[in-house]
Design a protein around this nucleic acid. Sequence first.
DNA 1: GGAGAGGCTTACT
DNA 2: AAGTAAGCCTCTC
Length: 120
Amino acid sequence: MAASQAYARIRAEVLRLVALIPAGKFTTYGSIALHMNVAPRHVASVLARLTEEEARALPWHRVVAAEGRISQGMEPSLQERQRSLLQQEGMRLDDRGYIQDTDAHFHVVGLRRNIRWSED
DNA sequence: GGAGAGGCTTACT
DNA sequence: AAGTAAGCCTCTC
């Protein structure tokens, strides 16, 4: 089947976790991926293919790449929006897109879970 | 079913 | 800090 059930569950969980990130905080793709026991790419793919309503309802901007930096692979316009949204929530970023006060604002999604996403 | 792509990551320069 | 290379797993065409 296309869009396997496993992926559907992963996607739903990613959305749930992102929704839990409090304002003024942030986390990384890697952290979510580690917590969910999936590849970082998967998390990125999920967020990259958000629907309109999901993008509106979720604080996707609170998820950044490794090292607390805004993802460079996406559209510059989106990068700008993400940066302004983060600054709007009280975080400082430098010109390169790095969050300056990472230790103070990092949101720990959770410990590593050995979840089996396949159906079995 | 095979090739290309994706909002990443780590390792190394 | 920036750039390159290679690995990563699944989606989409």
